[in-house]
Design a protein around this nucleic acid. Structure first.
Lengths: 210, 210
DNA sequence: GCGTATACGTCTACACTGTAGACCCATGGG
DNA sequence: CCCATGGGTCTACAGTGTAGACGTATACGC
């Protein structure tokens, strides 16, 4: 009955969603499961392992794009990217975990494979496929992490992130763009536009040496 | 005499370089400065503020590309990107800090401005400049963070990151690319190639609506 | 000169963290 | 019957960030 492990991961995930990642302590998880903190260690070797477990959960949710098998390669990449962002929107605390944890669970490898196949189908020379896979996954994860951490919304969230109003004389770019700055950004549209650009990049790479 | 604050940041940075970010505790920093833990709070409001302070230090090191003022826009972007990666190579623990901390110190804003100016000079329509700035900074930071966290070198570092050798039947992409996988990646060359592709993306965006 | 305010430092204490180690008990198999 | 094994509990330890009270030395107004 390994169901206890799943129950633990459920609890950890719920706590993270409700009170943030910092609130995920062994004691908190244990209390939620209705058990003593030390009991967790019978099912999870470490706290690190516990965190690995929950990123595993999230990665599993990334895959089930099973209906997409017939679609074109660029649509499949788009779907995967949007799935990834959907996850980090639902679980903002998870973004930086996806980055730091090497995350070589079977599901993660499967996700990478989806990208590999798409790139091959796009006509990328095989030698270049791994590099471009890293490029697009880096961008998608980076976007997701930036959004989750509030890097795209300076001024929102942390109060210390109010721009220090330094003399605009030092900032030719900012003063030139003043009309467009400070108006709200539509991150949905931006992510879509960025993905379009990245897909165009891929197509260009395929043309260069196909 | 605000020199004490700098001394504290120096100590914190040294500890992080020598023993990793987790070793940066208030007590450790205090001991290195030769003072009681609580004395730090006279110069630094929080541990969070202390971390903000050291990312400020790193960002300051990002800027002094003062000799590049005459160069072409793409060379300036390249220089900035390489400077960023150089920092996270020297201080791998800092990569994810650069991501998560909104980091709206004056120096950070100045760095953004450098990118703004380069994009304007590249002929990007002003409306699109902020988006593309976020795109390139996201990619550069993402690459740096991935490299620092070992995401690009599965198998190295954490022992748990040995791929789970799951049946290759499920992984058409991997088995197709087998010859190219598992041979060492030259991340210097990869970063250069990626930047070339991103710059090409920018040039394409400039052409589309210049 | 004196008195006082302010900057800096120390000490103690508190609530928390992850987790090692010993102990306990119920279940199931020889 | 006995014992091993899986799961749970309790205690304890070293370490974390930091609030609050206390001390002291320097600088400044009178």
């Amino acid at each position: 009955m390994g169901g206890r492990r799943e129950e633990i991961l459920d609890a950890a995930l719920a706590i993270a969603d409700e009170h943030g990642l910092d609130a995920v302590s062994m004691r908190a998880v244990a209390e939620r499961v209705g058990v003593t903190p030390m009991a967790l260690y019978r099912h999870v070797s470490d706290k690190a392992a516990l965190l690995d477990g929950i990123v595993g959960r999230l990665l599993a949710a990334l895959l089930p794009s099973d209906g997409d098998r017939g679609r074109a390669w660029d649509e499949r990449l788009n779907a995967l990217a949007h799935a990834c962002r959907a996850i980090t929107q639902r679980h903002p605390w998870a973004a930086h975990l996806l980055f730091s944890r090497p995350a070589v669970t079977p599901d993660a490898v499967r996700a990478v494979d989806v990208i590999y196949c798409a790139l091959i189908e796009a006509g990328i020379p095989e030698r270049e496929v791994p590099r471009l896979e890293r490029l697009v996954s880096t961008f998608v994860l980076g976007f997701a992490a930036s959004e989750a951490a509030g890097r795209f919304n300076p001024g929102t969230g942390d109060p210390r992130s109010r721009r220090g109003r330094l003399p605009d004389g030092d900032l030719p770019g900012h003063s030139r763009l003043a009309p467009w700055l400070n108006l709200p950004v539509d991150l949905d549209a931006e992510f879509k536009a960025d993905l379009d650009d990245v897909l165009a990049l891929i197509k260009a790479a395929a043309r260069k040496q196909g």
